[in-house]
């Protein structure tokens, strides 16, 4: 199922009127545990504001007293379920939430590290270099020819390579270690550095993929002549490490690149998509 088509579940920890508050440690542990398991949660206390109700099914956890919890008039009873958690240890609270998630067939969390490009449209000039560059179909264009990140889960974890080809430093990876790629402000010197990176890759043979292809072909012809497979592997790894340190591409991403022919085919496809988007934009 595509990431964005999944069902959702709202978790509420209710400690408002007519409920017994949890003791401080238990509350902190329970909330920390649910966050670590990937859940979002509304804590209802006294004062402060929470997000309004919507169509998403909700599981309300609380230490409800007396006659138990009551829904406000007009609230959608079929979408709200209550769970009395008095005396439940944190792992059983987490288990109850997990059980509800499974029953509602809501999105499972933690199956994918959310690593993907985010475009700063204040900076983006819609040049399509990112679309032409990415071999994994992460980028696309909308019907008006504007660049979009369309398939976040196709992105290669920890690879910020496309941010290096963006001439405007408009591509962020919020989980990257350093700025401006992580979303920190872009300084003039960053912009010069980003531009330089593109120029360097141009000098190295037109585009980064032809460089990769050439190296891979050279490496392959060497492998065929070499008897010592360890030596060949070492050579390949040395070459990949060099590329990785030059372009900030994780070695495992380079190792998983398709065959040179497939790279060529995908690069041509991406280039055609980018050209079509630019043409649509001009028309």
């Amino acid at each position: 199922m595509a990431l964005r088509d999944q069902t959702h579940l709202r978790i509420v920890l209710y400690e408002g009127a007519e409920a017994q508050p949890l003791d401080a440690d238990r509350r902190f542990q329970a909330i920390s545990r649910l966050l670590a398991q990937g859940y979002a949660l509304t804590r209802v206390g006294h004062g402060g504001r929470t997000a309004p109700a919507d169509d998403v099914p909700a599981l309300v956890l609380g230490q409800f007293g007396g006659a138990g919890p009551r829904l406000a008039a007009g609230a959608p009873a079929d979408r709200v379920r209550f769970r009395h958690i008095a005396g439940l240890p944190e792992d059983e609270i987490a288990g109850a939430v997990e059980g509800e998630r499974a029953e509602k067939k809501a999105a499972a969390h933690g199956t994918w590290k959310p690593w993907f490009p985010v475009i700063d449209y204040d900076r983006c000039t819609n040049c399509m270099q990112c679309l032409s560059f990415c071999l994994f179909g992460v980028y696309g264009a909308d019907h008006e020819g504007h660049i979009q990140v369309q398939s976040q889960d196709n992105c290669k974890t920890n690879c910020p390579a496309c941010s290096r080809v963006c001439p405007e430093a408009a591509i962020m990876f919020p989980k990257y270690k350093a700025g401006p790629i992580n979303g920190d402000l872009v300084k003039d010197e960053d912009l010069q550095r980003e531009k330089m990176k593109v120029d360097i890759s141009a000098l190295l043979g037109g585009d980064i993929y032809s460089m990769l292809r050439m190296r891979s072909e050279r490496a392959q012809s060497r492998f065929s002549k070499e008897r010592d497979s360890d030596k060949a592997l070492n050579e390949r790894q040395k070459c990949l490490v060099k590329l990785a340190s030059a372009g900030d591409i994780p070695p495992e991403v380079l190792m998983s690149l398709p065959s040179p022919e497939e790279i060529q085919r995908r690069a041509a496809e991406a280039k055609a998509k980018a050209e079509a988007a630019l043409a649509a934009q001009r028309s």
């Binding site: 859940y39 949660l41 402060g48 994918w112 959310p114 993907f116």
Partner: peptide, 18 residues
């Protein structure tokens, strides 16, 4: 948590955005 007031907490805004 100790403040007693209501708030929203999410595991990971990046994941939610994706």
């Amino acid at each position: 948590c100790d403040s007693g007031q209501s708030f929203e907490a999410v595991a990971d805004l990046c994941e939610m955005s994706a």
